[in-house]
């Protein structure tokens, strides 16, 4: 089969016809923007473009590290991400274990189907639902919270920096818990039923079976997803943050991705916005590398 490259290419011309358009697409929509990151070391002007805009060295980055709004957005980003990691990461694991323990399989299927649903609606809708249900005058949920004494009657939940973090974490869990549990349920489905039977014969109760069989078998999945989550600590959900901000919460909602968007595309400081984005990418990669490295040392599981 070995032949001249040109001849081989001609033999594969139809295969190439299928493959190359996507390769070209990646060059245009992924690789040229990656190259475009150089404008964070330049002062981009629309006329001069990526290539001919004048170099400014590290000026944008020097400004960045002296910019109090940037520092604030960095702190917000980590605060929100860590809260999401602490409360949001275990949620689907717990759900999958609870579902696995359900005796009536029909009930299990119904719960699964229902909890997947919020994953498929847009963040725009979710934020709309929040404004509606948490409206201080007409919202059913805010009235319920007031009558049970959890919040004061004058609390505007969507307009308060104090409730902002709670709402961010809660809606994140609400939207994704069902969908994220699928991958854990798949891992549980792969457990050999004989393990459970043997444990029952040995007299192990429900909780010991969960602790000694279900959880250990989820460990590899948990670790891989944890590495990815740690890598994602510096990325926040742009949709959620951008849509949940209003005049009252914009300081709390100012995370890196929102700040980068606003300075770069709203105020038109393209280079400065790109510098924020580049900083974010580098930190994300370093975090993921550290998480992966420590996981390989401690648990022998790793992503790469």
């Amino acid at each position: 089969m070995s032949s001249l490259p040109s001849k081989r290419f001609w033999q594969q011309r139809y295969l190439m016809l299928l493959t190359l358009p996507a390769v070209l697409w990646m060059i245009i929509f992924n690789y040229i923007p990656m190259y475009g990151v150089i404008i964070s070391f330049k002062e981009y002007t629309p006329f001069q473009g990526f290539l001919h805009s004048p170099w400014t060295g590290l000026a944008n980055f020097r400004e960045l590290f002296n910019d109090p709004t940037f520092t604030e957005s960095l702190a917000n980003t980590f605060k929100i991400s860590i809260a999401k990691l602490v409360f949001g990461f275990p949620a689907p694991i717990i759900l999958s274990i609870l579902l696995n323990e359900v005796v009536f399989k029909r009930f299990k299927r119904i719960v699964q189907s229902l909890t997947y649903l919020p994953y498929f609606v847009s963040w725009v809708l979710v934020v709309g639902l929040m404004y509606t249900l948490l409206d201080p005058e007409t919202g059913v949920i805010s009235k319920m919270l007031v009558s049970t004494g959890i919040i004061g009657s004058d609390t505007m939940m969507m307009g308060s920096p104090h409730t902002f973090l709670t709402l961010v974490v809660f809606t994140e869990i609400w939207k994704n818990i069902g969908w994220n549990s699928i991958i854990y349920l798949a891992a549980i489905a792969g457990i050999d039923p004989q393990l459970y039977e043997a444990a029952i014969v040995d007299g192990a109760g429900r909780f010991r079976r969960i602790w000694h069989i279900t959880l250990p078998s989820l460990k590899p999945t948990i670790i891989i997803l944890l590495i990815l989550s740690v890598g994602g600590l510096i990325n926040s959900n742009f949709d959620q943050m951008y849509l949940m901000q209003n005049s009252m919460t914009q300081d709390a909602a100012n995370v890196l991705s929102v700040y980068s968007y606003k300075t770069g595309l709203v105020t038109g400081r393209f280079s400065y916005g790109t510098a924020i984005g580049l900083f974010q990418s580098i930190v994300a990669f370093v975090l993921m590398y550290i998480a992966n490295y420590s996981s390989r040392k401690i648990t022998k599981e790793s992503l790469f």
Binding site: Y31, I32, P33, M34, G36
Partner: peptide, 29 residues
């Protein structure tokens, strides 16, 4: 048997980990 198959795949996988961010993307489009 596809020529350049490994390169094409590698190109695709790299985009899962790296991106130019929103602003260069906006400028390109």
């Amino acid at each position: 048997e596809l020529m350049g198959r490994r390169i094409f795949l590698m190109m695709a996988i790299v985009t899962m980990y790296f991106s130019g961010g929103i602003i260069p993307y906006y400028l390109v489009v």
